[in-house]
Amino acid sequence: MKRILLGVIGSLLALLSLSKAQDMAVYECVEKVVMSEEIVFDEEVNCRHIYHEECMNSYVTKFKSHQRNECSDQYKKKCMIVYDPVPIKIPYQFCPKKDFCRNLTRLTVKEVPREMCSMSLGKKCEEKPMLLPTIEAEEKCLEVPKEVCAIVQSNPRPVQKPVIKTWCPSLDSNDIRDCGDVLTVVGSVMYQTGIHEFPIGPPESNRTIRMDCDEDGWSVIQSRGQFGNRENYFARPWLAFVNGFGVPGMEFWLGLENMHLITNSKNYSLKITLEDTDGIVDHAIYTEFKISEKDRYALYVNGYTGGLGGDSFSYHSGFSFSAVDRDTDAWPEGNCALRFRGAWWHGACHHGNLNSFNKNTNDTGSFADSIVWRDFRGYRHSLRSAKMAIKVLN
């Protein structure tokens, strides 16, 4: 049950790492500061004054004399005296007898004077002088001074100046075959480590491969490490090693056929990076590396330089690649790949094998059947990680 649980956890970790490893490097346009040659001059400003006429209209109010006929209404009153008959009662006494009288009235007419007037309308006109305003335009012109300056250049000379230019790297060329070519095209500032895709073989084949680009333009063709895989992840038949398997950036084998095509197109060097279980890292570098003889994929390696890791690879130069199901080694007593659990360029059998079981321990309890490098940590120390990377020999 415990083994099954560990296997499930390992598979989940592998899937998460696979998702991360499959992110391809993306190169975007950037602004770069470059030096550009420009011609500069000594400059002197010469100025002088010129005059030009500027005119403008102004408006003036003027008054002109004018005779205006003014008329007014006049009313004339005409009156006359008329007599109106007005009946009035006049009292009187009527005495028919002596000592007997009565007061009576009699009606009579009396003319009462009354004034009667009538109005007649008339006009009285007379001429009066007056001033009428008028607006007249007047143009006024002035001589206005103006300063005119000119820049006079002298003493031309070239100088280097920093300028900002937008630069977009193009990785579409069929000539870009490995990480070193990418570094050459985009430059060290723009270069990105990580997964890149490259054409391989003749252009008409339209084949591509994916490789992990390491620092300084190194193309990783083989890598081992702790990514949750089972310890026998590299225990595979001959055909798998011919075609390649794994995930770039994790445990990965580019494939003998691809290695053959690449290393026979240019002169490559090889860098092997080793890390033990204590985290100590060392390198072994070879100036010449090639996989030849397409049917047997023999190894050619030469020009070892390196650190404390030592040379545990030159011994294998000249031997064909040997797998568990295809024994091409020089050991008369059996199959080295089967005996030491890893396909490799075995002689009789190996001084170092980076394709064997991944045990990640400083004492395997067995001999030479894990990721070992004799001259680094011996045959019983299974290394934590190992990496093989190639780069064109400069």
Rank of each mutant, 00 (worst) to 15 (best):
M1A: 10
R3Q: 10
I4K: 09
L12P: 03
L13P: 00
C29L: 04
F41L: 02
D42C: 07
H49D: 11
H49E: 14
I50W: 06
Y51S: 11
H52Y: 13
S58G: 05
S58W: 04
Q67S: 12
R68A: 13
C71F: 06
S72C: 05
S72Q: 12
Y75T: 14
Y75R: 12
K78G: 02
K78W: 08
D84A: 11
V86L: 12
Y92P: 06
P96H: 10
D99Y: 05
C101V: 08
C101E: 05
C101L: 08
R106F: 12
R106T: 14
L107I: 13
P113V: 15
P113C: 15
P113A: 15
S118F: 11
G122V: 06
G122N: 13
K128A: 11
M130T: 13
L132W: 03
A137Q: 13
K140Y: 12
C141N: 10
K146D: 14
V152F: 10
Q153E: 11
Q153R: 15
R157K: 14
W167L: 09
S170M: 06
S173F: 05
D175Y: 07
I176R: 02
G180Y: 07
V186G: 02
G187T: 08
G187S: 07
S188H: 11
V189G: 08
M190L: 13
Q192P: 01
H196T: 07
F198Y: 07
S205Q: 08
R210A: 08
M211E: 01
W218H: 03
S219V: 06
N229W: 07
G244P: 00
G244M: 03
W253F: 15
L254M: 12
N258P: 01
N258H: 15
I262G: 00
Y268T: 04
T273H: 03
D276Q: 06
G279F: 09
D282S: 14
A284Q: 07
E293K: 11
R296C: 04
L299V: 02
Y304N: 05
G307K: 02
G307V: 05
G309H: 02
D311A: 10
S314P: 04
F319A: 09
F321T: 00
S322K: 01
A337C: 04
R339W: 04
R339T: 13
R341N: 10
G342V: 00
S356N: 01
K359C: 00
R374G: 09
F376D: 02
S382C: 08
R384L: 14
K387F: 02
M388H: 03
V392I: 11
N394W: 02
